[in-house]
């Protein structure tokens, strides 16, 4: 047994599934970092709750990826024994928690997308993905409601909360474009009705977030330049630190059963 990296046969369906699993794990992990340190007890509970939803999604998606791949990988090997260059999550989701405003804006941008995305994915011709989508959509709807309410409270709260929320939006905006991108690997799955094309969801996503942001008396940047690279393993520097913590036990104790 080794604690080195596993190798993965990234067929389109395996890659597709790992990308979504990594999204859920990395964001879930970020939310779990708040545990015990939130601004109020109710938020400790809510952040843990959302973290648990995402962790649950990740586990189902990893297990499905393992099944599709058909080698001896499993949820834990995917999570604990791939390095930064093998992770496939969106850059947005690995961004550090920052203050509560930044955590909520990250959650809001993603949940507004995930809710739309999983709803359409419920019609996937792949029965497992359709089932995971149905569960994830319900959870995302709650995450969206929760984070939208906070965006409004923070934006239309005090001067300080308004400033912090606006700073978070300005900082994270450049990471939102990646959610709507499609590469060749995914194009085939979209054509086969297994995956859905996120690009057409962009207009609806914009409409949703624009409404909330306006109610919050905040503004969206005009800046059209977008970061990308997470889907192919070109990450920000933050992910390596997250993984070194997340993976420390299995890397230190190869072959142990917990």
């Amino acid at each position: 047994m080794t604690a080195g990296n596993i190798s993965v046969s990234e067929t389109p369906l395996v890659l597709y599934t790992l990308r979504r699993a990594d999204d859920a794990l990395i964001l879930g992990h970020r939310l779990s970092e708040w545990c015990g340190h939130a601004p109020m007890l109710e938020e400790d509970m809510a952040l843990a709750n959302m973290g648990l939803d995402l962790l649950g999604q990740a586990r189902e998606l990893y297990s499905y990826a393992a099944k599709v791949e058909g080698r001896d990988n499993d949820e834990d090997k995917f999570a604990y024994l791939r390095d930064v260059r093998q992770y496939r999550n969106l850059l947005l989701l690995e961004q550090p928690n920052g203050d509560f405003a930044r955590t909520m804006v990250r959650q809001f941008f993603y949940a507004a997308f995930a809710d739309l995305y999983w709803r359409v994915m419920m019609r996937s011709t792949d029965a497992t993905l359709a089932a995971i989508a149905a569960k994830s959509e319900k959870e995302s709807a709650y995450h969206l409601r929760h984070s939208s309410e906070w965006i409004v409270r923070l934006g239309d709260g005090t001067e300080e909360s308004h400033r912090r929320a606006q700073e978070a939006i300005d900082l994270l905006w450049a990471f939102t474009g990646e959610m709507f991108e499609v590469d060749d690997s995914e194009r085939g799955l979209i054509d086969a009705g297994i995956a859905v094309d996120p690009a057409p969801l962009r207009a609806q996503w914009m409409k949703r977030i624009t409404g909330v942001v306006a109610e919050a008396t905040l503004t969206l940047p005009n800046n059209g330049w977008m970061q990308q690279g997470g889907r192919s393993g070109r990450h920000s520097e933050h992910l390596g630190h997250l993984l070194s913590e997340l993976q420390s036990m299995p890397r230190t104790f190869p072959g142990a059963t917990w």
């Binding site: 545990c35 509970m45 648990l52 962790l55 586990r59």
Partner: peptide
């Protein structure tokens, strides 16, 4: 919640991570 929260980000499997996070959440409850 703090001493246990100290291991939420380092739990050795995803199952243990979920169990621990849910436990710490219960303590908040």
């Amino acid at each position: 919640m703090l001493p246990e929260g100290n291991w939420v980000t380092r739990a050795p499997t995803l199952k243990r991570k979920a169990i621990l996070l849910a436990k710490v959440q219960d303590e908040g409850g």
